[in-house]
Structures are given as structure tokens and as C-alpha cells.
């Protein structure tokens, strides 16, 4: 066949391949899937697949280095019957509930203060945000030292101010004190996120609303109660939902500060799951422990999708 007859088959076939690639890539339904492929592969292989593995482990008697068998919901039931797990379950709610309540109240107060006319505004904001950017595992070491049984600077200060009787509590070795200590560190570390995000919400409230309220004779307290709080509601919802997940599933603080002790009174799902799953090798049970987090995660995702993303679009 003579080469000269080719043009008759139509112009598109003659376009150089570069141009064809360019044109194909310009189509949204080609470029879109192409652009999300790397992220999709990553999520499928290293999030969705491990999640399925976790589901499988949780209904098996998997043990490090041994073949496993299907045992149904035995792990979940056995956990629910064990005192250590019930203690963990309770700890998680106490830890999350108290931490979030404090972070919310202190966060709103701090945000209101930061929203005032301040000298050294940038410097103050920088200082407030600092606990949030420093590696938690490392800053918790500092708290560990501050709560040390012999050299606690907290106790030294308490005694010096006459608030404590010498030698003061053994923070990390006594039941309720240990929980107080881990909650304190969690508040310390999470407060900046609350304060700075709520501050962004405060800045976005239109000034006219306050002027109108003032014209109607509203004092500072009722301006806060009837203007600020209702306007902040969406931001507060997001912050609380986010923080619920990350406080509930916290690992670093408890692991470094108390290792779950004394006698499991500060264990959270993540630390207990690691202890059972890795330190004692019962992977099946360990996976079941972390899966107890899942219903909460589902709830938060549902709430976020329903209340939060709706506003974004």
C-alpha cells in the first residue's frame, strides 16, 4: 500500500501523538481520575486494606507468629467482660469529656482575650500556639519531669504557695491524680487549637451585630450570650467534633506519662490496644480494642458531613 493514500483515513489520525495526549489530558473526565489516582491507590492500599485486615483480626484469635482462626465476636465479648477493658472504656469517656469541657471554656475565654486590642499581638499568639506545634511525645517528657515523684516542680510550687502539704501528691502513681495529670497535659496541648480556631470565628462576626445589640441596650454579658455564642456555634461544633476524635484516640500523652498506670486507671483505647496487641502479642484482641473506637468515628464523620460540609458548599 502506498503511504500517500493514508490521509484519506481522516485528519485526527494524522495528529502527532503529543498533541493527541495533550488533548486527551485536557478532558476533565480523563484528567480528573488521573489526578486522584495516586491518592486513591494510597488510601486503598494503606488505609482501606489495613482496615479490612483489622476487621479480620478482630474476629480471629491472631497471635504474633501463629496461624489464626475465625472465632466470631469472642474478642469483643471477652473484652467487654474484662475489668481492664471496662476501666479503659470508662477512662476514655472521662478523659475526653473533662478535657473537651475545659478546652472549650478556656478556649473561648482565651479567644475573647486574644481578640482584644493587645500590645505584642503576634508574640502573644505565637506563645499561645507553641504547645500545639512542639512534638507531643517530647513536650510530654517535660511534663513527666514536672510530675516526678521526688523532684516535682508542681509540688514544690504548691508547697511554697501553701496550697499543698509536703511532700504533695505522687501525681503519676495515684489513681485520680494520674488521670488529672494526663487530662492537664491534654488540655495544655489542645487549648491552642481551640483558642486560635475560635478566634478566627470571632473575627468573622460582623461588627454591626454588636452595634445593633448595644443600641438595643445589651450589656457585655448579654452581647456575649445573644450575639457571640450563637454566631460561634458552627465553629464550636467543628472544633468539638474534631477534638472528640483526636482526644478519644489519644496515644502519646498517656504512653509517655503513665503507660496506662497505675493499674490501668489511665489507659485509653490506643494505649491499651498497643499493650494487648503488641506487648502481649494478642493481635486479634488488640484490633478489637481499637475497633471499639470505630462507632464514635462514624458518628463524628456523620455529624461533620451533615452539619459542617453542608455549609462549606
Amino acid at each position: 500500500m502506498a503511504i500517500g493514500t493514508l490521509p484519506a483515513t481522516g485528519a485526527p489520525a494524522r495528529l502527532p501523538w503529543r498533541t493527541r495526549v495533550r488533548e486527551t489530558l485536557d478532558r476533565e473526565r480523563v484528567l480528573g481520575p488521573l489526578f486522584i489516582t495516586p491518592a486513591l491507590i494510597l488510601i486503598l492500599l494503606l488505609v482501606a486494606y489495613p482496615f479490612c485486615v483489622a476487621l479480620y483480626f478482630s474476629v480471629s484469635n491472631a497471635f504474633i507468629g501463629r496461624p489464626s482462626h475465625f472465632i466470631g465476636l469472642t474478642n469483643f465479648i471477652r473484652l467487654w467482660d474484662s475489668d481492664a477493658f471496662r476501666q479503659t472504656f470508662q477512662n476514655a469517656f472521662v478523659f475526653t469529656g473533662i478535657s473537651i469541657a475545659f478546652k472549650l471554656v478556656l478556649g473561648i475565654s482565651l479567644a475573647l482575650l486574644l481578640n482584644q486590642q493587645l500590645w505584642f499581638k503576634r508574640l502573644i499568639r505565637g506563645a499561645v500556639l507553641l504547645p500545639w506545634v512542639i512534638p507531643t511525645a517530647l513536650s510530654t517528657l517535660g511534663w513527666w519531669w514536672m510530675f516526678n515523684s521526688l523532684y516535682s516542680v508542681v509540688n514544690w510550687t504548691g508547697i511554697a504557695l501553701g496550697l499543698m502539704d509536703p511532700p504533695g501528691p505522687n501525681w503519676l502513681g495515684q489513681r485520680y491524680y494520674a488521670m488529672t495529670a494526663v487530662i492537664t497535659v491534654n488540655i495544655w496541648r489542645g487549648l491552642p487549637f481551640f483558642a486560635i480556631t475560635i478566634l478566627a470565628g470571632l473575627v468573622a462576626i460582623p461588627k454591626e451585630l454588636y452595634e445593633a445589640a448595644q443600641a438595643d441596650g445589651a450589656g457585655p454579658w448579654s452581647r456575649f450570650w445573644y450575639v457571640t455564642l450563637p454566631m460561634l456555634k458552627p465553629v464550636l461544633a467543628v472544633v468539638v467534633l474534631f477534638s472528640t476524635i483526636f482526644t478519644f484516640s489519644d496515644f502519646n500523652i498517656v504512653y509517655v506519662l503513665t503507660h496506662g498506670g497505675p493499674i490501668n486507671t489511665t489507659h485509653l483505647f490506643a494505649t491499651y490496644s498497643r499493650m494487648i496487641g503488641l506487648e502481649s502479642g494478642r493481635i486479634g484482641e488488640g484490633a478489637a480494642i481499637s475497633l471499639y473506637l470505630f462507632p464514635l468515628l462514624m458518628f463524628v464523620v456523620w455529624a461533620q458531613l451533615r452539619f459542617v460540609r453542608k455549609q462549606a458548599y
Binding site: 489495613p50 483489622a54 483480626f57 476524635i245 484516640s249 503488641l278 481499637s290 468515628l297 463524628v300
Partner: peptide
């Protein structure tokens, strides 16, 4: 995925 905490998946990921 953004909301999935790392402490939910570290056990199975260790196996992977």
C-alpha cells in the same frame, strides 16, 4: 480518611 486517627490502624498497618 482525614478523620481516621492513626491509633485506629497502627496494628494492622504493622502487619502490612
Amino acid at each position: 480518611t482525614y478523620l481516621v486517627p492513626t491509633s485506629l490502624l497502627f496494628l494492622p498497618l504493622a502487619q502490612v
